[in-house]
Design a protein around this nucleic acid. Structure first.
Length: 472
RNA sequence: GCUCCUAUCGUCUAGAGGCCUAGGACGGAGCCCUCUCAAGGCUUAAACCCCGGUUCGAAUCCGGGUAGGAGCGCCA
């Protein structure tokens, strides 16, 4: 049997981080077993589904490089099939019409709550042998309800949570088709998973309570239920549900914050899943090692600090050529033209050790591509002094005379100058930094000057000298 | 309220009855290295929710508490 998994988001918002993790788990499980992974858009709620949300989901999945093995499926394009199955169930007696109005049902629930009972449909329109149904009200379009078994139990053998048992008594007759004929979620899911040969349903654990009903519908249809794996939710840093305040929302925003897609995925896979003490995985390793035996059943908190650490690890070990396009995106985002300076790969090579995010890298690398917009006040006060200016002035002359503008030549020149003046390297390198970078933070000074280039370096050294002189 | 789920350092987790004086990672603290910022190296503090039971032996199995969470829609 070929494993087929699916990710089935509803397009009512962006692709959030929890959804991304379920998508990842589904993807990994399918790949691990040489199976297929598909993306299905659950857009039967026409009120709330939007095209923007569909686009956002595709964008997120594409950025994460979680590719579907089939064309995307939209539930709204399968209405004929759902209607057909509804008719089939109506004919078989496993579903029935219910004419109760929304108001009536609301009143019923309110009463039940008042009596401290679990609110549930009381079966007033459910046909039973020997039971007389109420008279059909005129002009009312009925909904269709599934006739859930009244007795027995449903056992879910969940791959993550183990055996979960529900009494059929707890389950009421859910609506499978609305009054306007549009089928509902619990029904569409069942028909789709069945039709598409889904073998493993991997989804958020907010769906556990739906599962027994879905299994019952499947059984009524004569289908074999798939295996289930209910993944626990991701909590915010304070243990509460993830929200905007925790900075954990759409995957697109993680991109904007400066994450590499593979790094985000790596962080996410470790949130709930483990493979001994291993923290870092390539995509191939994730595929080779992922399994549900080691997925935790308890909810996990999103820890930004650790996520940044993982991102940093990726920045340090990934081929600069792979980082470059993403880095490029960030530079443009802050209004920097990457063409107007050194090769991105070389800059990445120098900056990767000192940046946890690409946003940070872009900001710290801006000076390579754009003119300085002033000096950091504190750094300037400390290093752009008359003494510093003297150093810069002499150094400018020395560097101007360099036959070759290489990191090695610059290293020798700067170090040689410091030695000849019996100055500590810090006394020389720091003023240069501030002059050339605008602040006292940068990669090693020889590399910095090399990448910045002769023209810009000399111009900035001189500008710093005049800055100091004009000030005094 | 009812049903279901969960419970190891601050956080993510290892742990499938003896290998646990509970391991790793992030974060924290300290030291070393150092042209800045980093990176790196070393050291260190820090946890089995509680109570019973099973067993020669329990973080691990069972029961009960407690605490969190999810669901109870003509939402998905």
């Amino acid at each position: 049997m070929t494993v087929v998994t699916r990710f089935a988001p509803s397009p009512t918002g962006y692709l959030h981080i929890g959804g991304a993790r379920t998508a990842l788990f589904s993807y990994l499980y399918a790949k691990r077993h040489g199976g297929k992974f598909l993306l299905r858009i659950e857009d039967t709620d026409r009120e709330r589904s939007t095209q923007e949300a569909v686009d956002a989901i595709f964008e997120g999945m594409a950025w994460l490089n979680l590719k579907s093995d089939f064309a995307e499926i939209y539930q709204t394009q399968r209405f004929d099939r759902y209607r057909e199955v509804v008719q089939q169930m109506l004919a078989a007696g496993t579903a029935y019409h219910c004419y109760a109005s929304k108001e009536e049902l609301d009143a019923m629930r309110a009463e039940q709550m008042a009596r401290k009972e679990k609110p549930r449909y009381d079966g007033r329109w459910r046909p039973e042998p020997g039971k007389t149904l109420p008279p059909v009200p005129a002009g009312v379009q009925p909904v269709v309800r599934f006739r859930n078994p009244g007795e027995g139990q449903v056992v879910i053998r969940d791959l993550i949570k183990g055996e979960i048992v529900f009494d059929n008594k707890e389950l009421d007759d859910l609506i499978i088709a609305r009054a306007d004929g549009v089928p509902t979620y619990n029904f569409c899911v069942v028909v789709d998973d069945w039709d598409m040969g889904i073998t493993h349903v991997i989804r958020g654990d907010d769906h556990v309570n739906n599962t027994p009903r879905q299994i019952n519908i499947l059984k009524a249809l004569g289908a074999t239920p798939p295996a289930y794996a209910h993944v626990s939710m991701i909590l915010g840093a304070d243990g509460a549900k993830l929200s905007k305040r925790h900075g954990a929302l759409s995957v697109t925003e993680y991109r904007a914050m400066g994450f590499m897609p593979e790094a985000l995925l790596n962080y996410l896979v470790r949130l709930g899943w483990s493979h001994g003490d291993q923290e870092l995985f390539t995509r191939e390793e994730m595929i080779a090692k992922f399994d549900f035996d080691h997925v935790s059943a308890s909810p996990a908190r999103f820890d930004m600090e650790k996520a940044w650490w993982v991102n940093h690890q990726y920045l340090k070990i990934t081929d600069p050529a792979i980082i470059a396009p993403e880095f490029d995106w960030h530079l443009r985002r802050i209004g920097v033209d990457p063409a107007n300076g050194p090769d991105l790969k070389a800059v990445i090579e120098q900056q990767r050790e000192r940046c946890r995010s690409l946003v940070e890298m872009a900001e710290k690398s801006k000076f390579f591509y754009a003119e300085l917009d002033g000096y950091d006040d504190k750094d300037a006060a400390k290093h752009l002094t008359p003494d510093g200016a003297a150093v810069l002035d002499e150094l400018a002359t020395a560097l101007e005379a360099l036959p070759e503008w290489t990191a090695a030549a610059l290293h020798t020149a700067v170090n040689g100058y410091a030695e000849s003046k019996e100055l500590g390297l810090g006394k020389v390198a720091q003023p240069i930094r501030v002059a050339v970078v605008g602040m006292a933070i940068s990669p090693p000074i020889d590399q910095t000057l090399f990448l910045l280039g002769r023209q810009r370096t000399l111009a900035r050294l001189k500008a710093a000298v005049s800055y100091v002189r004009n000030k005094s």
